[in-house]
């Protein structure tokens, strides 16, 4: 998806938090990115470095926690692990799977000083 817009979104959220907190520097930004979120992590790192230049976030480390994809299989009527949107249920082979988790992209916390 569009990593540049996402990186800009991250910087906006961090700037809001820095203004509210009054801290001097951001040392690290912790993100939670679902395995099924439409984001390419390496591209996001590249864009993050580019858009943080000359902001309070410049030089901050980007830490990404990947959360596993989860789904509800309608045939099995149970929770299953989902590694890609087009994959079959690992238990019964059905494609009737509703994604229930691992598709979010969040700014979790900041390490500041």
């Amino acid at each position: 998806m569009h990593e540049m817009s996402l990186a800009e979104g991250i910087v906006q959220l961090v700037e809001d938090a820095v203004r509210a907190d009054g801290c001097a520097r951001v040392r690290a930004v912790w993100l939670e990115i679902g395995q099924l979120a439409a984001v390419e992590k390496e591209s996001l790192r590249f864009c993050f470095d580019a858009v943080t230049r000359d902001t309070v976030v410049e030089g901050a480390r980007l830490e990404i926690i990947e959360t596993p994809g989860q789904g509800w299989c309608m045939k099995c009527e149970g929770n299953v692990a989902v590694t890609a949107l087009y994959e079959a249920c690992p238990v019964c082979g059905s494609y009737q799977i509703q994604v229930t988790g691992g598709d979010a992209m969040r700014v979790k916390e900041l390490e500041v000083e």
Partner: peptide, 17 residues
Amino acid sequence: LSQARMVRIERDILSKN
């Protein structure tokens, strides 16, 4: 450990949009 603190944000990256 350094003097760094953690600030919780817990907001979706696309929350502005």
